[in-house]
Design a binder for these strands. Structure first.
Lengths: 176, 176
DNA sequence: CGAAGCATGTAAGGTGTTACATGATTCT
DNA sequence: AGAATCATGTAACACCTTACATGCTTCG
């Protein structure tokens, strides 16, 4: 149940409409906690019902500006201070495929892993570009956390690339 | 919808009951594609209904031994050869927390990250022990894939440990 | 005989995805 | 005027988790 906390977090120092929050999910939070339009609007209504958010203002096209309440701040803080536990069950269809990779020919297996190398490299490039576009001296506190998360993404994609490359070379080692 | 493929994969070179498959999920597949009892039994019934599996034999306590069919093999192969796409949306409540870490005091933030360092180290130790217990010369093809996946886990936890350590040092750099 | 393990199944509830549906406002 | 964008909402379906429910067999 972290979607609610993501929303609360985004509303800590500004008010916003569902539509704006949705955009934030597509950009900043896309790599950490993706959410769809349905989910966002639904959860906002629920949060307002529970008194963690309130509608601060109504705008042009039925637009509702949400603001966090004291109860909302308390809930967010509480969530931040609780142990996330083993990071939510990590399912990876890619690794599952690797588990059964011997059902393919060595060529097909290598091709699969080399595809993963390229996928990771592409992701890494994307994040590098994001970092460069972000570094423009725009250092609010907000950006500091974002940089930590971004660095995680960079390290992850680097690791994935190296691993896939290594794994590809494990299959039929003698292929010059 | 990868659970079905995990089941098909496990049944490629042996028949097994739901109970046995469940144990396999708890051990070998736990870190790649966890599944609960409810899920396994339900999916097995569905797979049999769809003709991808068949009940090869009935045992002592209502035990059903499932065997993969030709249709099942075809489906599994097809799945292995399709692009997994960007590996299923990766949600991490830990990274989400990091995103909002500036809402805590620097001490609390550092404590959180240092906790992650230890969590990753523990996980890494667990996997190392698993590798050592596994290396006992038991090299079927099956184990080869498992070793690739295990190596991924080792590299991932190492990366996480290093990252969390680095991130902790980013917060309030001057704390001797 | 009692405990542990084998063995399967159902039901309720939460979360997430996709698709459908509608309408207002701004910009060209 | 028409297109793009802003803006919200609902419904159906898939998937996963937890809990409940039941009963047989083997081992000590």
């Amino acid at each position: 149940m972290s979607l609610r906390h993501a929303l609360l977090g985004l509303l800590v120092d500004r008010t916003a409409s569902g539509y704006e929050l949705l955009k934030l999910f597509e950009t900043s939070l896309a790599n950490v906690w993706p959410a769809t339009q349905s989910q966002v609007y639904g959860e906002l209504t629920r949060l307002a019902d529970n008194g963690l958010l309130e509608v601060a203002a109504q705008g042009p096209r039925g637009r509702k500006d949400y603001a966090i309440t004291e109860a909302g701040r308390a809930e967010l803080l509480h969530w931040l201070l609780t142990d996330p536990g083993p990071d939510s069950p990590r399912r990876s269809s890619t690794l599952l495929r690797v588990f059964f990779l011997d059902l393919l020919t060595p060529e097909q297996g290598r091709a699969f892993l080399e595809h993963q190398v390229r996928r990771a490299a592409t992701q890494r490039d994307k994040l590098k570009k994001l970092r460069n576009s972000l570094d423009w001296r725009e250092s609010g506190m907000l950006t500091a956390n974002g940089r930590l998360v971004l660095e995680y993404g960079l390290r992850l994609s680097a690791m994935q690339q190296e691993w896939a490359d290594w794994a590809a070379r494990q299959i039929t080692p003698g292929t010059t």
